[in-house]
Write a protein that binds this DNA or RNA. Structure first.
Lengths: 64, 64
DNA sequence: ATTTGATGCAATATTTATCTTGCATTAGTA
DNA sequence: TACTAATGCAAGATAAATATTGCATCAAAT
């Protein structure tokens, strides 16, 4: 599962810790989600999407 | 948090139990997500979206 | 060479989603 | 009326997400 979260975060010039703070998560959580080793909650996905000015589909949806 | 999941499910003529089976969840889980009392995992959201022929944004995103 | 910031990794603890089971209720229908 | 299907609700158990802490590594800057 490859998501575009890391790419977008780096594009925005944000560090994992900065993004984590914005979405009330931890750096570790962000890192593991980026690596595809976590199955994050919907609320966290939404918070991340908003922090990165993207939508859920942009970051977490892959066309069939 | 009002989502369009229940509306879409009913439109598709599916029962909570039928949808639950398709996404490997329980009827209760589906019911609680529909009521907005659960914060489902991304994987479950994706499975639900695919089962209903919708995308994440269709079901779980609300424009700012 | 050393310091600092960013990330990776890993063990444990805590919180929360999800399951399991069971019963109540409602609507439809035979 | 009785029967069935669909949904609501709720308590306890389990699994998984997330937090916490600490240390290692690597790159960039001093």
């Amino acid at each position: 599962m490859v998501n575009k979260m890391k790419l977008t975060r780096v594009e925005r010039g944000l560090t994992q810790a900065q993004l984590a703070k914005q979405v009330n998560a931890t750096r570790q959580t962000i890192g593991l989600i980026e690596k595809g080793e976590y199955n994050p909650s919907l609320n966290l996905c939404i918070a991340i999407a908003k922090a990165l000015n993207k939508t859920l589909d942009d970051l977490f949806w892959e066309g069939d």
